[in-house]
Nucleic acid binder design. Sequence first.
RNA 1: GCCCCCGUAGCCCAACCGGCAGAGGCAGCCGACUUAAAAUCGGCCCAGUGCGGGUUCGAUCCCCGUCGGGGGCACCA
Length: 968
Amino acid sequence: MSETPHRYTAELADRVEVAWQDRWEEEGTFRAPNPAGPWADPEGVACRGPNGKLLVLDMFPYPSGAGLHVGHPLGYIATDVFARYHRMLGENVLHCLGYDAFGLPAEQYAVQTGQHPRKTTEDNIVIMKRQLRRLGLGHDDRRAVETIDPAYYRWTQWIFLQIYDSWYDETAARPDGGLGKARPIADLVAQFEAGERPVPGEDGRGWIDLSAAERGEILDSYRLAYTTEAPVNWAPGLGTVLSNEEVTNEGRSERGNFPVFKKNLRQWMMRITAYADRLADDLDRVDWPEKVKAMQRNWIGRSQGARVGFPVVGSGESIEVFTTRPDTLFGATFMVVAPEHPLVDGLVPQGDWPEGTKPEWTGGAETPAAAVAAYRRATSRRSDVERQMEGKDKTGVFTGAYATNPVNGQAVPVFVADYVLASYGTGAIMAVPGQDERDWDFAKRFDLPIIRTVRPAEGHDPDTAYTGDGPAVNSANDEISLDGLGVAEAKERIVAWLEDKGAGHGTINYKLRDWLFSRQRYWGEPFPVVFDEDGVSHALPESMLPLELPDVPDYSPRTFEPEDDSSEPEPPLGRVTEWVEVDLDLGDGIRHYRRETNTMPNWAGSCWYFLRYLDPANDEAFVDPANEAYWMAPQANPVEGAPVGTVDPGGVDLYIGGVEHAVLHLLYARFWVKVLHDLGHLTSEEPFRRYFAQGYIQAPAYTDGRGTYVEASEVEETVPAIGGEPVFTYRGEVVTREFGKIGKSLKNMVSPDDMYRAYGADTFRLYEMGLGPLEHSKPWDTRAVVGSQRFLQRVWRNVVDEETGALVVSEEAPSDELNRLLHKTIDAVRRDFATLGFNTAIARLTELNNALTKLEAAPRAVVEPLVLMLAPLAPHIAEELWSRLGHPDSLAYEPFPVADPELLVDATVTCVVQIKGKVRDRVDVPADITEGALRELVLALPKVEQAIAGGVRTVVVRAPKLVNVVPA
RNA sequence: GCCCCCGUAGCCCAACCGGCAGAGGCAGCCGACUUAAAAUCGGCCCAGUGCGGGUUCGAUCCCCGUCGGGGGCACCA
């Protein structure tokens, strides 16, 4: 029998923690009341949230087969601490966690193990739930939604139909004064029917004259969710197509790293480009890390410029280019079109090279047609990876055609080159080598003329393009002169001139493309859409939702050789004929339809899960409007740092998660929320009002001589002689240490289960929060966890006798000094919790506790606030101590200690005396000493008198803390 | 190549508005407890802020340059 049976050990922590987790669950401690909906509890809202509400959110976790590692809970603990703190401030806090359970990894795992993805997914969720529960997170357990639940994806499908049944009206006024918003497609049909809007098409037929198929095609060109045949990213190794956001720079799939090919396929798209401006502009209205905003702005890639037509010599055609530098038009000495540009065929003249063709322009071919054909063939065969590898060496051939520069009538040669991208701008450029590095390189390579139209700054290398600002030169014709103007003004002038001449117009261009929304996989939400015999799509009525994913014997996708770009996607649902072929009555009697066999990407479920958290039991609506407004509505004051006059967009109060979703999930969710807002379903215009990007927990990983990772847990460390570097060995072989993301691939998994066992959840929580700032990536060090345990042991010992279990706090009042320390600690900890500075909060609490440890017995008047302040970080031990201190109720809603401002300042402070900025003396003075008195007092100090024997130049007084004397 | 962030003790990190470089933890060392060890407890040691300039009475903090680390973008016209 141990002599200290009541010591705070891992075993004791385990008992205490599990007991409190049970009690929280039984009492529904963290269930947040809703104002409306099926759980309407307005009274609960009123008494639980006298100080308002708080919606705290974690990124939607994917239940992986490997279970959690110690990196996963970092954000969950942080939000939990924040949420618990705010509950103690008297706010109604909603914090919960659900599961994003559709998607590729689950399906691949299922295929590997021969089990149904539903089975493996559900098993994984069970494991993850157990691991998370053991962490002691204060989640509202009723709100743990799962995307694979038909009661959930019914609403994912419903939202899809809202988007499908909408179009973007550029001219519609928004409440915020801007123009453009989503409207029901029925409004558009009404406009066509009434003749208020011209029906697209050249034959002048009216809406009623069109066939159903023709109408369907026109509507598809407006719908925010539509099918179209377009070049898409096809990954044969995955058996599915992917969105642009899911393809890496190297032209491979983000998941699985398979090669991706461009292929023309009919696919579902989301018209996210309609929202490009608002998605870019509204970043000013949210509180996000600047780097994430920058990444989104970058991805949207808005650039202001002009479109200019260059008439092709000897043809009625004109090549339209996009340029951000219309001010440099006079320096456009040639043009380049992308190899895939549809105009190329029409450009190339029959017969021989024209007069003036330089030998290097021909690519060695006899005729322009041969040269262009050969070049196009060569580029189409090269993958993006190969183009990348070739660096920036410019290639291309002359098309044999010339086009006329509209500002000076010069005929300039037109080239085909792959440095111009078909997918950006108009797929054609005017080349201005004097002011563009890429054009400069091309001009040098192909011996083309270079005209500078901006005078380079002093010291500019004359052998390079000049892209900076400066006065225009060589930029005049009979009607207009830009000479002498700066870039900005020159742009304005020339655009006005072009518009006047009808040669071009100012415009805005975006890098953002529409979002490819279908996948040829089984494990996803089915599209609530059917096609009739003409191929026209029809929405299923709401009454037919959810359209359940059929249980099929063969759910594995057809995958191909990763390099086989001739393959075609084959969705698994396409094999379920009895499901695909249906007879339905959609309003004009029973007819035969074919279901959509693609499924949605797993971003679909995560685009709106936070809305379902608000009202998960509602089967009348995806969320009750009153609940949405309560938790998400725009607030009276905009976020800090927003431009003056900003109207708050509303949204989740705090969202914490890794930065890896900066342009995927975060952009998609913003888009959906904006559409739903436009359609009147949401008060909020943004999903995430405040987003905080957490750092990663990194762990040591070890490689052997061949560079292969070895199991980190089996590596031994030996520290040789003093001062020597530690040596790491694995099975006798010396290995090299590095730090990286925790996971299977680096073989450095550390499971939270091990931490619970060895230390308990509170110690683990404290360790992760105490490591350093939340936004930093930090190395995991299992050996260091013990420090957090020691702290909790010392706290415990200040309250409980380790031998008898008796309460040992003193009922005597604390000393003035201790009381002041307590109040300073309260003040600091409150500030730290508010700003997510958990590491410094822990340091302050440790300091306060260390002061108690030195006493014979810790006074209750200090212990109780200490326990309350510790509660958000280490809730189990805090609950246990609180209970032992004689409080029967959970402390979850106990008011957080308040600092007395009187006690934050000491009666006397130490004033630093500097001479010429160097500390030379210090003196204790009353805290409220006046500047004059302090000055006199310091000047009378012996050391100072000595130093200023030769006179005084200045005396800087910062009462009461500092005086700096500068002798003459 | 361009843009952003970060360099403080052996390691992770503090330092309010430009005002004494150190709060907390790990590791190390010494001591207490122990037959011993582990655990625990008490104590100690350790940097002048990557480097070079500048502004200032005074710089970890502001400015310029430079080196190192991390991240983003990368023919986007």
